[in-house]
Amino acid sequence: MTDAERLTRLEERYAHLQRHSTEQDKAMLEIAEQLARLQAELAVLRAQQPGGASSPSEGDAADERPPHY
């Protein structure tokens, strides 16, 4: 394989990974927006329950991120 061929392959691979990364970024933003909407909806529903928002459900960790963040 010549240097020119290797360069072409590496540039193609780089472009592919860059596109894939952009797609993942968009997906993560959509997920974050959905989480924010659900968190707000949960807060409203919890506030309507006896005891109000002062009694969070078990395992509620909306501000926690998985270890890879």
Rank of each mutant, 00 (worst) to 15 (best):
Y69A: 15
A62I: 10
R37K: 13
E58G: 03
H68I: 03
S55T: 15
S21Y: 13
T8I: 08
H20V: 13
D63H: 12
D25V: 08
H68K: 08
Q39Y: 04
L42M: 04
S54I: 07
I31K: 14
L17D: 09
E58Y: 08
V44P: 00
A15G: 04
Q48G: 11
R6G: 00
H20K: 15
E5N: 09
T2D: 12
M28K: 11
Q49M: 14
L17E: 14
D63Q: 14
E30K: 02
L45C: 10
L35F: 12
A62Y: 08
P67G: 06
A32H: 09
E23A: 11
P67E: 10
E23F: 01
A43Y: 03
D25E: 15
Q49E: 13
L17Q: 10
P67M: 12
L7E: 14
E64C: 04
A47K: 04
G51W: 04
S57M: 07
S21H: 14
L7G: 02
R13I: 01
K26R: 08
T8V: 12
M1R: 05
R9F: 13
A61T: 09
A47Q: 13
E33S: 11
G51E: 07
E11H: 11
A53H: 00
R65H: 13
E64G: 01
H16F: 14
R37E: 11
R19K: 12
R65I: 06
S55A: 06
E64D: 14
R65P: 00
R37S: 05
E41W: 08
H16E: 11
R65G: 09
S57A: 12
A32E: 11
E30D: 13
P67A: 15
G59K: 00
S57I: 05
P66L: 10
R9M: 13
L10Y: 10
Q18I: 01
E12Q: 15
M1K: 01
A4T: 06
L17Y: 11
P67W: 15
Q34T: 14
R9Q: 10
A43N: 08
Q24H: 03
T22V: 08
R6C: 02
A40G: 04
D63S: 12
A62K: 02
E5I: 02
G51Y: 08
E41T: 07
L38Y: 05
R6Q: 13
R6Y: 05
M28A: 15
A47Y: 06
Y14D: 06
E33R: 14
E30S: 07
Y69F: 15
P56N: 01
R37D: 04
E64K: 07
Y14P: 01
H68S: 08
E12W: 03
D60K: 00
R19G: 03
E58A: 14
Q39W: 09
I31H: 03
P50M: 03
A27W: 04
R9D: 10
P66M: 06
T8G: 02
E33K: 13
L7W: 11
Q49R: 15
R9H: 12
E33M: 06
S21P: 00
L38M: 09
R37Y: 09
A40V: 05
